[in-house]
Design a protein around this nucleic acid. Structure first.
Lengths: 344, 344
DNA sequence: GCACAAAATGATAGCGTTAACATTTAACTT
DNA sequence: AAGTTAAATGTTAACGCTATCATTTTGTGC
């Protein structure tokens, strides 16, 4: 297309009749430029279609303009949704995203984190659950003085900025909705034990039952791992009980999808004979039939908060780490679809 | 962890008693180093745990060590699977991946491609279908002299390296399998018209029917768009026909999942009253019930070929562009699951 | 109008690497 | 052994930007 060479800071400076530093300052918004020259320079920037050379910038400023995303989440739909959102957000603010899956074993974990830091020199990291609760990783990052934002963390909440939603409350409400629809025999498939949200959701579930004076037998609680497969075997156990539940609350959509599959296998119609609700509202929830009633988790918004926090550099100074405006609790939404219904 | 500063080329050179250039040459493998010094330097590299500074390298070499991935694919499961594979592969060879979704409108398309090239200065691009067949984009890239690999392209096959599989043959075989299972009334939901593979799969389907002397009414052909939603309405039409098909071959898994949903809505049991087969073998295929019989598309392998081609720099010289070893046709596999079965 | 501070701008020196060319060393020839 | 060529290594100057400090301009109070 345009055959002219990429214009450099120097070119812009020459055209605008100022020094390179002034142009640099305009670009980096760190003040100390008069309005007049600022507008002049900005005009030239546009005119020459200037695009900063990321590498030169990195080299000179010793910032990498890279963010890292660490995950080890069993729910593929959750990860990829978070990933895609983050990628776009990063691009919008001139950053790049380096994605890494951390290994199961702890030693390998630390290695790969160290490697990520070393090789790509990320300016900050986003930690998805359950990585965000691995104490050793947090320590490594703090020692290396690398800012990080945790997504839906479970413990050590005062350690770093984080973004989450009220998993407990959401679980409470979606359970209560099942109760209001007349369900009494409600089972729950717990999420991955390493993920803090699992426990919160479970607790919300229990408390909703309790506050409605509903007792369920212990067999109604199954441990899952956020995977389709684990949901499948959990549901199979639930559905072969003598006193079969009339509703299942799975701790994420993947397992809810599995619950529906398991019901189909046993010829139990959903939702007429069995209601199923999930959690997350990933794409999957509306790609299986029946579409899954679920809690919409604001994944995209969470990614946004995380990226913006890191880019803002608000907490480069460790002293700021305790500030409360670095902790974000976002809203959820209960979404009623075809997989759950009132009892007849 | 390690508190010592990152070691630089200079440090390694000093320790090894050679010049920086020699170290650089060892790193970049471009020959002209004696075995003896090579081993000596490599030992020091390891000893000092040297990690090259990507930015400095980029700046000096005028290479970016970035690859771009351009997509506009309606099938989320396909994209995210390709994406995750590519990300890992890139990291393994010291590259980073910049992902971009191209816009629907052509003008915006070109803009965003130009922007991608300008801003990130990618060394090469991977184009997923249907982006890989937008002539204007190809022209832009060629004019800018940026290497690119196309995935499952449709036309202009001699223009660039590509990787694909035999969509026609796969469609032929999976259709024939349905026929062998006794199906005669087989419907097809065509994929997105912009994606070349759609046509090939459709053709394979038609030819399988023809070679088995099976005629189907024109109503058995529905146009879809690779999305769940489009598959849903297509199947709804098919299932309300008087002469309902006994099997549906959807051009991808998302639409096959929709076909199953639509059948459920109408209380048509799958596979006993309706067999459904898909295409791609994305995660989705084994996350819905019944699990979808499908064609396994070697997505990961395709990503691998694409990344390796670009990294190898084999076709930096345009003269090489016609070489046949830059065109890869990978193997597929027919996967029989629970969504299709013999007719009784 | 003068001293003085504060704001705005400029000059210079890297950041860590590779390209391009210069030089040295080794390896053959005759 | 001198001459020639090739292989191995070294030197220097970018690459495009920002940090740091130096300098100029502007504004303020008396």
């Amino acid at each position: 297309m345009n055959k002219d060479k990429k214009s450099r800071l120097q070119d812009v400076a020459k055209h605008a009749g100022v020094s390179m530093m002034t142009v640099s300052r305009v670009l980096n918004q760190n003040g100390m430029v008069s309005e007049k020259t600022k507008t002049k320079v900005q005009a030239k920037l546009k005119e020459l279609n200037y695009q900063p050379n990321v590498s030169a910038r990195r080299l000179a400023s010793n910032k990498s303009f890279f963010l890292g995303l660490l995950y080890d989440n069993p729910s593929a739909s959750y990860v990829s949704q978070f990933l895609l959102s983050s990628l776009k957000l990063c691009r919008d603010c001139g950053y790049h995203l380096v994605v890494d899956e951390v290994d199961k074993s702890l030693t390998k974990n630390l290695e790969s984190v160290a490697e990520l830091i070393n090789i790509t020199q990320v300016d900050g990291l986003i930690l998805l659950p359950p990585v965000c609760d691995i104490a050793e990783i947090l320590e490594t990052l703090m020692a290396a003085n690398i800012p990080f934002v945790r997504v839906s963390p479970n413990a050590q909440l005062n350690v770093s900025p984080y973004v989450c939603m009220d998993d407990y409350q959401a679980a409470f409400e979606i359970t209560e909705q099942l109760i209001q629809q007349g369900h009494v025999n409600i089972a729950h498939i717990i999420g991955h034990p390493d993920v803090g949200a699992s426990r919160l959701r479970y607790q919300g579930f229990l408390d909703a039952l309790r506050s409605n004076k509903i007792n369920i037998p212990p067999e109604y609680i199954e441990q899952g791992f956020f995977t389709y497969k684990s949901g499948l075997s959990a549901t199979q156990k639930l559905l072969s009980l003598n006193n079969r539940p009339s509703a299942i609350f799975a701790s994420n959509d993947d397992m809810a999808a599995a619950a529906i599959s398991a019901a189909h296998m046993k010829n139990i119609p959903v939702p007429t004979a069995l209601s199923v609700v999930g959690f997350d509202d990933t794409l999957l929830a509306s790609t299986v039939w029946p579409h899954i009633s679920t809690v919409r988790q604001p994944i995209k918004e969470m990614a946004k908060v995380a990226v913006e926090l890191l880019v803002s550099g608000k907490f480069d100074d460790p002293a700021n780490l305790k500030r409360s405006d670095l902790r974000h609790v976002l809203d959820f939404e209960i979404i009623q679809r075809e997989s759950s219904t009132g009892i007849s």
